[in-house]
Design a protein around this nucleic acid. Structure first.
Length: 608
DNA sequence: GCGAGGCTGTATCACACCAA
DNA sequence: TTGGTGTGATACAGCCTCGC
């Protein structure tokens, strides 16, 4: 294979990649443009498809990277990505020397062998050479032959990949091992395969309680604690007369997570054996928690760890476990005091605890600095609906994925219209809006009513605060269009046959008693956001609106708090960075003024 | 195989409340 | 008024099952 390790090699050797006509020029220009976009010399940018995908696929704010439109960005990405795939041998080149190269490539021989025996009713089953492709790609990039795969390399590659690529890599490794195990049945593979299968990486997502065989008594104790926590010790007879538990189910599941984390860390560190953990009182103790927190912290500081070094998770876990120790295990007063000190330790309660996430704060700042981003956010309902309408115009000719895109864009337009024009709701409240039925939360303008409105009862809201607002005409227009045109398509003409139930929910899911699933809901928003060249989650949208209003109207803090349905003190705390920013700007303006004045008053002679 | 919706667990963030 | 504590939420990823 040609050695294409950097973008420079790639740009210089582009003629050998088999492009037709002027395409090579387009691709070369795209590669050269990467220098500006990456702000690095071409020779320093590695030819690595996964690094490229990690950076440029998914949520990418095209405008922030200097592209004029999402389309322009996608064109650039497609040119560069295609070149990377050709360079890595993932795309047929079609030129004369290709066959000779294939023979020289052990991976290609293996792939050809599998391809010849893949398909319906054949030895390996359908598309098995595709299964292998990601393993081959990564191995080629690392310069490893099939004999040179080892557990460490597999682990590193597995960790570096994400989502479907990671899943595919694991599937490929499993299949590769199958081939090795049955190498006797495939004599033609000859010396291509190693003698023994390679140890596979462990999945990054642990099972609850580390999937270990733990004593029944521990599991029973956890359930008893959760029950106690939810009902705050109320007797079952009393509970029957109460409408809801004292605590939310979400919160209880968070306690389960903390216990799971503690057990997993203890077992992985070998601090205890599974059979030794018989109840929560064995593990929710100061000494053990301190040890485990130390181990977790060390791992977070490790360069290759997937944990963020300044994340607040550890603090949350320690708080949860401390709570169990105090209220369930009932440790001594002395131990309670130690736990309290532990929670305050800098390593556990780092500087991010209690503050808005850095990424969100950065986005809010970008929103204030960049006019293009700001207008893209504010125009989101219209831009996404326009794109959906264009697609809808030739619905019958659309592919399934294009129809899906059309519907998702329409969902996003409706979400954005409510968030940006009516009320910056939390995702759960937005998702649960009903437009008919007994408990209607969004009402359209009717003959008797002058204006539509949104009203959400307090018990549906995080802090039990009732939320309500009138429905502005530009919001209502988009929501109505969604209800009349796009929602029926979700219910009766879902492109992939996943018709939603025609429930009372504005955003229906496949089940009649609940709205669309949160993950699907967030995905629709993501599709619309990306179409607008932005990178923002539903919750960041809420922040974005608050940031813009507060920055322009610092004296309207109480109004903004009321609108968001939170405490003014909380707004003050979370948007404090706006004050610092404003103070800095004001300070700079004053300094400039003073400098100008000083220059005016200083005689020209002494200035030189 | 691929893409969908939905469920679940982990990681992280938001924010109400309380006490100093 | 401010900082600490505890609760409740979102984001993200992996897995499952289903239809095309």
């Amino acid at each position: 294979m040609q050695d294409f390790r950097t973008f420079r090699c790639l740009a210089e050797g582009l003629d050998r990649l088999g492009y037709e006509g002027n395409t090579a020029n387009d691709v070369r220009r795209a590669l050269v443009r990467a220098e500006k976009i990456y702000n690095e010399p071409l020779g320093a940018i590695r030819v690595d498809l996964d690094a490229f995908d990690a950076r440029w696929r998914g949520k990418v704010s095209a405008l922030e990277h200097g592209f004029r439109s999402r389309g322009g960005f996608e064109k650039w990405r497609s040119n560069v990505r295609g070149a990377l795939k050709r360079a890595l041998g993932l795309k047929a080149l079609g030129d004369a020397g290709a066959d000779d190269r294939r023979l020289a490539d052990e991976w290609q021989q293996l792939k050809d062998y599998v391809a010849e025996r893949s398909g319906n009713g054949r030895v390996f089953g359908p598309h098995r050479e595709i299964t292998l492709s990601i393993l081959i790609e990564r191995a080629r990039l690392a310069g490893r032959s099939p004999h040179q795969l080892d557990p460490t390399w597999l682990r590193e590659e597995y960790d570096a990949l994400h989502n479907k690529r990671r899943k595919g890599f694991m599937r490929a490794a499993v299949f590769f091992n199958e081939l090795v195990r049955h190498r006797g049945a495939h004599p033609n593979l000859g010396n291509l395969l190693p003698q023994a299968p390679c140890q596979l990486p462990r999945s990054q997502r642990g099972k609850q309680y580390a999937g270990a065989a733990l004593p029944e008594s521990l599991l029973a104790d956890v359930e008893a604690f959760i029950e106690h926590y939810l009902w705050q010790g109320e007797e079952p007879l009393v509970r029957d007369h109460l409408e809801d538990a004292e605590r939310s189910v979400q919160s209880a599941s968070s306690y389960r997570s903390a216990i799971s984390w503690l057990v997993r860390e203890i077992l992985e560190a070998g601090l205890m054996k599974p059979e030794e953990i018989t109840s929560l009182s064995d593990i929710c103790r100061y000494q053990l928690l301190r040890q485990v927190a130390g181990i977790f912290r060390t791992r977070a500081l490790d360069e290759v760890s997937h944990l963020r070094r300044d994340a607040t998770s550890l603090h949350t876990y320690v708080c949860r476990v401390s709570y169990i120790a105090r209220h369930w295990v009932r440790v001594s007063a002395e131990e309670v005091e130690r736990l309290k000190r532990l929670r305050k330790k800098k390593a556990i309660k780092n500087h991010r605890v209690g503050k808005m996430g850095e990424e969100r704060e950065a986005f809010a700042s970008a929103l204030l600095d960049n006019l293009r981003i700001r207008s893209a956010v504010l125009g989101l309902p219209e831009t996404t609906l326009r794109e959906a309408d264009v697609l809808l115009g030739h619905w019958d000719d659309l592919s399934l994925s294009a129809r899906m895109r059309c519907l998702r864009l329409a969902v996003c337009a409706c979400q954005a219209a409510i968030l940006l024009r009516a009320m910056a709701l939390r995702a759960t409240n937005l998702r649960s809006i009903t437009f008919r039925g007994k408990e209607t939360t969004i009402v359209f303008k009717g003959e008797a009513r002058k204006a539509g409105k949104i009203s959400i009862p307090g018990r549906q809201v995080k802090n039990n605060r009732e939320l309500g607002c009138p429905l502005p005409p530009d919001c209502e227009k988009i929501v109505r269009r969604f209800v009349e045109v796009y929602r029926p398509l979700l219910v009766t003409a879902h492109p992939y046959g996943k018709n939603a139930s025609d429930s009372d929910f504005l955003f229906p899911g496949t089940l009649a008693d609940r709205p669309v699933d949160a993950s699907v809901f967030a995905h629709c928003f993501e599709i619309g956001i990306r179409a607008a060249g932005l990178d923002m989650t539903l919750h960041m949208c809420r922040h974005a609106i608050a940031t813009l209003i507060l920055y322009e109207n610092p004296d309207r803090l109480v109004m903004v708090a009321d609108w968001l349905g939170i405490d003014p003190a909380t707004v003050r705390k979370h948007y404090g960075f706006l004050d610092s920013r404003r103070a800095a700007e004001l300070g700079q303006q004053h300094m400039q003024k003073l400098i100008r004045e000083a220059r005016r008053r200083t005689p020209v002679r002494s200035r030189s």
